[in-house]
Design a protein around this nucleic acid. Structure first.
Length: 229
DNA sequence: TCATTAAATTGTT
DNA sequence: AACAATTTAATGA
C-alpha cells in the first residue's frame, strides 16, 4: 500500500512534475529508516542526498565549542531538506538528528541535478521552498530579538506546522519539551510553563512527549503587538 | 497478557 | 541544576 513508488508520487514536488519527470525521479529515490536519536550525518560529513520525511521528525543542529547545543530548525512529515548542500556539492554544515523514529526518502545527487536541469515544475518547487525557508530564518532572528519566551515557543511550534515546509504535519507534533526548548532557544522549564499557559489559552493541548496544536493561526502570530510588529 | 523494571519525559523547586 | 512525579517502553514469566 505504501510502496516507495506511491510515497514518491505523493510528495509535494512530484505533483508538479510531468509524468516522465516523475518516472525519472522514482529511479533515483531510496528509502531509509532511522531510530529516535540516530544521526543522519554529523557536521562535516558528506551526505549526498536530497532528503524528504515520510514520517517522523528531524532537527538541524550543532554543538558550539563551548558545548552549548543549538537547534536551527525542525523538519517534519512531508518536508524536504538538504538542497543547499546538494546544489553546492558541499559537506553538511550541521548535524542532522532524528528526534523520533523517522522514515525517509532520499534522492540521489544525480537525480536531483537531472530534475534541476530539466524540470520547470521542480524548479518552481525549489524556489518556493528556498523562499519559505529564508522567511523562516529571518523570522527566527526576529523572534530572538523582540519576542518573549512564550511567544517564541508558540511561533516555533507554528513553523513545525508550516504547510509549505512540512506539508504533511497535522495537529500532532511528537517532540519532547527539551527539544522544543533547544529549538526555541529557551530553557526547558520556560517551555514547560509556556506550554501550560498556551494550553490554558486553548491554543494547544500538552500530552506526554507530544503536543496537539489546536490553533496554528494564533500560535503563528502569538505575541504580536508586544514588540515592533 | 500481565506484572515488574528501566528509561524517558514532565512538572517543580 | 537538581529532584520528584508521571508516563511509556522493555522485559520476562
Amino acid at each position: 500500500m505504501n510502496s516507495r513508488n506511491e510515497l514518491v508520487r505523493k510528495t509535494v514536488w512530484a505533483r508538479e512534475l510531468a509524468d516522465e519527470e516523475v518516472e525519472r525521479a522514482l529511479r533515483g529515490v531510496s528509502e531509509k529508516h532511522y531510530a529516535k536519536g540516530g544521526y543522519l550525518c554529523h557536521r562535516g560529513d558528506r551526505f549526498d542526498y536530497w532528503t524528504g520525511i515520510v514520517t517522523g521528525l528531524i532537527k538541524m543542529s550543532s554543538i558550539a565549542r563551548s558545548g552549548k547545543a543549538i537547534t536551527f530548525a525542525g523538519i517534519g512529515a512531508g518536508g524536504w531538506f538538504g538542497e543547499g548542500s546538494v546544489l553546492k556539492d558541499e559537506p553538511r554544515k550541521y548535524d542532522l538528528v532524528a528526534l523520533r523514529d523517522t522514515h525517509l526518502l532520499m534522492m540521489s545527487r544525480a537525480t536531483f541535478f537531472w530534475l534541476y536541469e530539466n524540470s520547470v515544475g521542480f524548479n518552481r518547487f525549489l524556489v518556493r521552498q528556498l523562499n519559505e525557508r529564508l522567511a523562516q530564518f529571518i523570522a527566527s532572528t526576529e523572534y530572538e530579538r523582540i519576542l518573549d519566551p512564550k511567544a517564541r515557543v508558540a511561533r516555533n511550534l507554528a513553523w513545525l506546522c508550516n504547510p509549505v515546509l512540512n506539508p504533511d504535519v497535522r495537529e500532532l507534533i511528537e517532540i519532547a519539551q527539551e527539544e522544543l526548548a533547544l529549538l526555541a532557544g529557551v530553557s526547558r522549564p520556560i517551555v514547560n510553563r509556556s506550554l501550560q499557559a498556551l494550553e490554558e489559552e486553548g491554543l494547544l493541548r500538552v500530552e506526554h512527549g507530544r503536543i496537539v496544536v489546536a490553533d496554528v493561526e494564533r500560535l503563528g502570530d502569538y505575541g504580536a503587538g508586544s514588540g515592533f510588529e
